[in-house]
Design a binder for these strands. Structure first.
Lengths: 243, 243
DNA sequence: TATTATATTTCAAATAATGAAATTTTACGA
DNA sequence: TCGTAAAATTTCATTATTTGAAATATAATA
């Protein structure tokens, strides 16, 4: 809280962030643009130079490119927002987690978070399923504007010829999804496999879904509320990192 | 010079560097290992938390992963939306597609879009290669500001000891990349494997690259323009979905 | 539940940060 | 090359922040 905020640290980072955006700058520019006294700016820059976060050359300053903190933080794979958070769930329940996004009337799996070293699940990246036949799909569609849902259903009907899509059943299913906060696929896609999913929101809009899939023995019916709760906690943290 | 060194800034960065090495730490550990008064450590950590450089959870501190100064820009949404868009290309040409982002003087693969059940490709997620030894890397660097390219080359030279980096050859290669709109790796990384990549832009700046890799029989030299054109169409669509 | 350890807050003293003014250095034009 | 103006750096005095011990609160462990 503000009670302990160090003004010196705040100003120091302000300068670093400014140099990240501007690549190079003079003392005059830094002081003026950041509304700092030029003496203060001078001293802070001198400190940053001495600490190897900034380089000074011919009276211009640049971010130090060989500073380990600035350039060699976590490898990007670890920054896959879903992975660190979601791995707790995949390990806890020994199931695979997935992220899906909408693509026309289908949902496409775009990220897989396995619970062991088995890479076989990754083959699902890129695979698509109709929105009504997947927990990931229903978790997205349940939170779309009604007009968009209607358009997607129309689109589905024109492509799905092997069966007649039951609008009323789907609408009812989506209402249940909204009510309980998660969508469910109970052996509908694969025998013995249960799937749950929750929407991932950004700025109040659904942009993706997060779900888990696994055998009925691991995703027991009486655990569904707990699992859904964990998924909701997870998607909230993912959502926070997307902003 | 020492004359202007701010102790507060020095201590603040000391803490950040400590957290980079230790991933997580308690107040006690930080204070003890860095020989700081625990009240001082507490206040500095509180400031770093408020400035979004450190995260505090259950009395343990970690570096903030969504801080743009500390973390390479790697929006997970990029890895998500790229999947359905790029699937058209992977199916059409029967090759694997990749997303790469810059990380220091390396390019790191953050997403793989496979076309068959070859799971070994997914193990490449997280792997890094020097920017000049990868089509994905060259596709990014070719569109960076000249000053940043110079800095990266300098950094590469100070790490790469097994060979002498040819500045002029690289500069020429990057000029060709800009001219033809895509970068090429013709069996330079793997025997019999050809790679092409194009930059992914956002707000006029390169943020990642999209590339394909496959055997010479599928990525025939006379098809390269068509493939590059398809990649450019894809990257434009990806770029549109990121805004 | 009690005890111990860790974290946070309070208080008073010490130190550093701050900014104006002065001085030096750099850049530019004649 | 010299003079001028602008930018950068140093000096000085004042103000504000940082500091750390002590006290208090919270969390963890037996």
């Amino acid at each position: 809280m503000t009670q302990y905020l160090s003004g010196t640290l705040a100003k120091g980072f302000k300068i670093l962030e400014y140099l990240q955006q501007h690549t190079t700058a003079t003392l005059n520019e830094v002081a003026f643009d950041l509304a700092l006294n030029k003496t203060t700016a001078f001293r802070l820059l001198a400190s940053l130079v001495e600490l190897h976060y900034v380089k000074k050359s011919h009276q211009t300053y640049t971010l130090a490119t060989n500073n380990q903190l600035l350039t060699q933080f976590n490898p990007p794979v670890l920054n896959w927002v879903a992975v660190p958070i979601t791995t707790q769930i995949t390990k806890k329940y020994q199931v695979t987690a997935y992220i899906g996004i909408l693509n026309g009337p289908n949902v496409v799996i775009t990220q897989v978070i396995g619970f062991d070293d088995d890479l076989s699940e990754y083959a699902k990246i890129g695979s698509a399923a109709p929105i009504n036949e997947s927990a990931l799909g229903k978790a997205i569609v349940a939170y779309l504007p009604r007009s968009k849902v209607t358009a997607l259903v129309t689109q589905l009907k024109s492509t799905a010829t092997k069966y007649t899509l039951n609008d009323q059943a789907l609408a009812q299913n989506l209402a249940i999804t909204r009510q309980q906060g998660y969508s469910l696929d109970d052996e509908e896609s694969s025998f013995g496999i249960r799937c749950l999913a929750v929407p991932i929101m950004k700025d109040g809009q659904v942009i993706a879904s997060l779900g888990v899939a696994g055998p009925l023995t691991r995703l027991k019916r009486q655990r569904l509320k707990q699992i859904a709760h964990d998924l909701q906690t997870c998607r909230t943290e993912i959502g926070l990192q997307l902003t």
